[in-house]
Design a binder for these strands. Structure first.
Length: 422
RNA sequence: GUGGAUGUAGCUCAGUGGUAGAGCCCCGGAUUGUGGUUCCGGUGGUCGUGGGUUCGAUCCCCAUCAUCCACCCCA
C-alpha cells in the first residue's frame, strides 16, 4: 500500500480544499459511508462477472461468519445508505463523497490497492440537464486546478438497459461469426462483457471491430434524444468532447450516458475521472426505480498529474512566518511563552518555537531550514530588556530589536501580510 | 491475474564468494550570541525477508514480499 508522507500532504489538502469548495458552490452535500460493507452489496451492484467482483475485492468473514468486503468503489455504498436512510423518498439528492477504496490489482504508477476517490451521485433526476451539470462541475474543477488543457472528455451513450441488452445480443451474434479472429481475451469477454471487445487494442482485430454493429445505431429513441440534448448543452457551454462509441465502462450498472476524462500524461493509467448514468441500480438493490447519475475521480492520479505538470501553486505549501528560538534553558522557556502570546494575538500566524536545545548557531541553522521568513531571537540581552531580535531570513535587511509588547502589532507589517484579528 | 525489471545508509546509487563504500542529508567543530558558501570531523546499514549451496554469501540457487514498467483492468 502507499504511505502519504508529510511532504505530500499539503498537496492533498490543497486538492481536497478545492474539491470541498467546489461541491459547496454547486450545492452538493457530503455523505460519509463505511469502508466495510456486506459483500453481497457489491456483487449485486457492480455485477457478478466483472473483474472487480471476480478477482479484485478484499473480502473476508467476520466473527459472525458474515462476508464483508472493503469497498472497491463508492456508488454501491452511497445507494445503499441513501435508500436505508430515506434520502430517496420522493426527493432528489445531490451528494458527494471522498475516501479510500480497495482493489486487489497489480500495483503500478497511478494504480494502488488502496486508493482514493472523490465522487458525486445524484438521485431522482432523469433528464440530460443533470448529466450536463455533473460534467460541467468536473470541467470547472479541471479549470480551477489548471488541468483543463490536459484532459479530454470522452462521451458515449449505452442506451436504456433494454436497448443495451438487445445490442449486446446483436454483438455476441456478430462476433460469434468471427471467432477465428478473436484473441483469447476477447473470447473470454464474449461471455463476460462482450462490449469490452470493442475496446481491444489488438491490431489483428481492428477490421472485425470496425465492422461490428454500432451502439449508436441501436439506441432507443428516448436515449437518443437524451444524448442529443446533453451534447447540445455541452456545446452551448463551450465544453469540448469526443464521442467515443467504444467507451463502455466496466461496471454493469451503467445505462445511457457514460463519460470519461482522460489524460496522456500519466502513462497507461490515463483515466482520471469517469462516470455516467445508472438508472437501474436503485431498483436493482431493492429500492423504488430512481434515476441516478454520478462520477468518481482518482485522487492519486489527479495529484500525480498536478505534480507532473508542475501545477501546484505556492500557496499549497505556505511557509512558516516565524521561527522562535532561545539561547539557553531560560530563554527557551521565554520563547515558548512568546510563541503562545503571538498565536493568541495573531490567529493566522504560522509560528514554530525551537525545541531540543543546541548551540545558538545550530538553532539559527534550524530557523533557516524551517523556511520561516523571520527568526525571533531571544538571548540573555533580550531577556534582560524584555525584547526580541527580529532577524530577516529571506531578505537582505538589518535585524532589529523590538520590545515584546509591540511585537504582535509590528508583525503584520514585518511580514507584509495580515495575520487575523490582533 | 500475465510478462519483464529492480530491492545495499534517511535519499540517489557504486561494489565484492571472505562479514561494505561515495555523494547528498543529519550532527559537531573552524575562539566570545547569528543561517544560506567553504574546510575538517562524526553518527548511521540484520546489504527486502525466509530457506538452500558453500569452510564462508550482500554477491550463487529457490521461494516470498514490495516497488516500477507493460498487458489486463480501472479511478
Amino acid at each position: 500500500m502507499n504511505d502519504l508522507l508529510p511532504n505530500q500532504s499539503p498537496l492533498w489538502q490543497y486538492f481536497e480544499g478545492q474539491v470541498r469548495a467546489l461541491m459547496g458552490r454547486y450545492g452538493y452535500d457530503e455523505i460519509r459511508t463505511p469502508v466495510l460493507e456486506q459483500t453481497a452489496l457489491f456483487k449485486r451492484s457492480i455485477g457478478e462477472v466483472t473483474d472487480i467482483v471476480e478477482k479484485e475485492m478484499y473480502t473476508f468473514e467476520d466473527r459472525n461468519g458474515d462476508s464483508l468486503t472493503l469497498r472497491p468503489e463508492g456508488t454501491a455504498s452511497c445507494v445503499r445508505a441513501a435508500m436505508e436512510q430515506g434520502l430517496l423518498h420522493n426527493q432528489t439528492q445531490r451528494l458527494w463523497y471522498q475516501g479510500p477504496m480497495f482493489r486487489h490489482e497489480r500495483p503500478q504508477k497511478g494504480r494502488y490497492r488502496q486508493f482514493h476517490q472523490v465522487g458525486i451521485e445524484t438521485y431522482g433526476l432523469e433528464g440530460p440537464d443533470i448529466d450536463a451539470e455533473v460534467i460541467l462541475l468536473s470541467a470547472r474543477l479541471w479549470q480551477q486546478l489548471g488541468l483543463d488543457k490536459h484532459v479530454t472528455l470522452e462521451l458515449n451513450s449505452l442506451g436504456s438497459l433494454d436497448a443495451r441488452a438487445a445490442y449486446r445480443d446483436l454483438l455476441v451474434a456478430y462476433f460469434k461469426q468471427h471467432m477465428d479472429v478473436l484473441d483469447e481475451d476477447s473470447l473470454r469477454r464474449l461471455e463476460s462483457n462482450p462490449m469490452r471487445i470493442l475496446d481491444s487494442k489488438n491490431p489483428a482485430m481492428v477490421d472485425v471491430i470496425e465492422g461490428a454493429p454500432k451502439l449508436m445505431d441501436h439506441l432507443d429513441e428516448a436515449s437518443r434524444t437524451h444524448f442529443e440534448e446533453l451534447t447540445a448543452i455541452l456545446d452551448a457551454a463551450g465544453i469540448d468532447y469526443v464521442i467515443n462509441p467504444r467507451l463502455v465502462r466496466g461496471l454493469d450498472y451503467y445505462s445511457r450516458t457514460v463519460f470519461e476524462w482522460t489524460t496522456t500524461a500519466l502513462g497507461s493509467q490515463g483515466t482520471v475521472c469517469a462516470g455516467g448514468r445508472y438508472d437501474g441500480l436503485v431498483e436493482q438493490l431493492g429500492g423504488k426505480p430512481t434515476p441516478a447519475v454520478g462520477f468518481a475521480m482518482g485522487v492519486e492520479r489527479l495529484i500525480l498529474l498536478l505534480e507532473t505538470l508542475e501545477l501546484v501553486p505556492d500557496e499549497a505549501r505556505p511557509p512558516l512566518d516565524v521561527y522562535v528560538l532561545g539561547m539557553d534553558t531560560a530563554a527557551t522557556r521565554s520563547a515558548l511563552l512568546l510563541g503562545e502570546q503571538l498565536r493568541g494575538a495573531l490567529p493566522e500566524l504560522r509560528a514554530q518555537v525551537h525545541c531540543g536545545g543546541g548551540s545558538f548557531k545550530s538553532q539559527i541553522k534550524k530557523a533557516d531550514k524551517s523556511g520561516a521568513r523571520l527568526a525571533l531571537l531571544i538571548g540573555e540581552d533580550e531577556l534582560a530588556e524584555n525584547a526580541v531580535t527580529v532577524k530577516f531570513m529571506r531578505e537582505d535587511r538589518e535585524q532589529q530589536r523590538l520590545s515584546r509588547e509591540t511585537l504582535a502589532e509590528m508583525l503584520p507589517a514585518l511580514l507584509d501580510r495580515p495575520l487575523g484579528q490582533a
